Measured scan of single mutants.
Amino acid sequence: VGDQVLEIVPSNEEQIKNLLQLEAQEHLQLDFWKSPTTPGETAHVRVPFVNVQAVKVFLESQGIAYSIMIED
């Protein structure tokens, strides 16, 4: 199991704000291929294997929908 690319769908401005804060966490080494800008629009982010669980827990705790787009 390696890195994953998640497709994330924020449903409101609050969730977009939370994702932008997540993007700013440099220690997570997230690679946003497509940043969140509009509710209902997908964002794509590559998550290093060591941080996959932490990111998924965060998304679930914020009620942000996501799916695994690419499993490496």
Rank of each mutant, 00 (worst) to 15 (best):
V1N: 14
V1W: 13
G2I: 08
G2Y: 13
G2Q: 11
D3V: 12
Q4W: 15
Q4P: 08
V5Q: 05
V5G: 03
L6F: 15
L6Y: 06
L6I: 07
L6V: 03
E7H: 14
E7A: 15
E7S: 14
E7K: 11
I8M: 05
I8D: 01
V9D: 03
V9T: 11
V9L: 11
P10E: 01
P10K: 01
S11F: 11
N12E: 02
N12G: 03
N12L: 02
N12Y: 02
N12H: 03
N12R: 02
E13V: 10
E13Q: 10
E13D: 10
E14N: 07
E14A: 10
Q15G: 02
Q15T: 02
Q15V: 03
I16N: 01
I16P: 00
K17E: 08
K17V: 08
K17C: 08
N18I: 15
L19I: 07
L19F: 02
L19N: 00
L19R: 00
L20R: 12
L20Q: 10
Q21K: 15
Q21G: 08
Q21W: 15
E23R: 15
E23P: 05
E23A: 15
A24F: 08
A24I: 09
A24G: 09
A24V: 07
Q25D: 12
Q25A: 11
Q25L: 12
E26K: 14
E26S: 13
L28R: 03
L28S: 03
L28N: 03
L28T: 03
L28G: 04
L28W: 14
Q29Y: 08
L30R: 01
F32C: 03
F32H: 02
F32E: 01
K34A: 06
K34Q: 07
K34D: 10
S35A: 13
S35K: 14
S35V: 12
S35I: 14
P36A: 11
P36K: 02
T38K: 11
P39N: 03
G40M: 06
G40R: 03
G40P: 02
E41W: 09
E41F: 06
E41R: 06
T42E: 04
A43V: 15
A43F: 15
A43C: 15
A43Y: 15
A43W: 15
H44Y: 15
V45G: 02
V45L: 15
R46Q: 05
R46S: 07
V47S: 01
V47D: 00
V47R: 00
P48M: 04
P48V: 03
P48E: 03
F49P: 03
F49K: 08
F49S: 10
F49W: 11
F49Q: 08
F49M: 10
F49H: 08
N51F: 14
N51Q: 09
N51V: 08
N51T: 05
N51Y: 15
V52H: 04
Q53C: 10
Q53V: 10
A54F: 13
A54V: 12
V55R: 00
V55Q: 00
V55D: 00
K56F: 08
K56R: 11
K56L: 14
K56A: 06
V57A: 12
F58G: 01
F58D: 01
F58T: 03
L59N: 00
L59V: 01
L59I: 02
L59C: 03
L59D: 00
E60K: 06
E60L: 06
E60Q: 08
E60N: 07
S61F: 06
S61D: 07
S61M: 11
S61Y: 07
S61V: 09
Q62C: 14
Q62N: 14
G63H: 06
G63D: 05
I64V: 03
I64G: 00
I64P: 00
I64S: 00
Y66E: 00
S67F: 09
I70N: 11
I70T: 12
I70Y: 13
E71H: 08
D72R: 06
D72E: 14
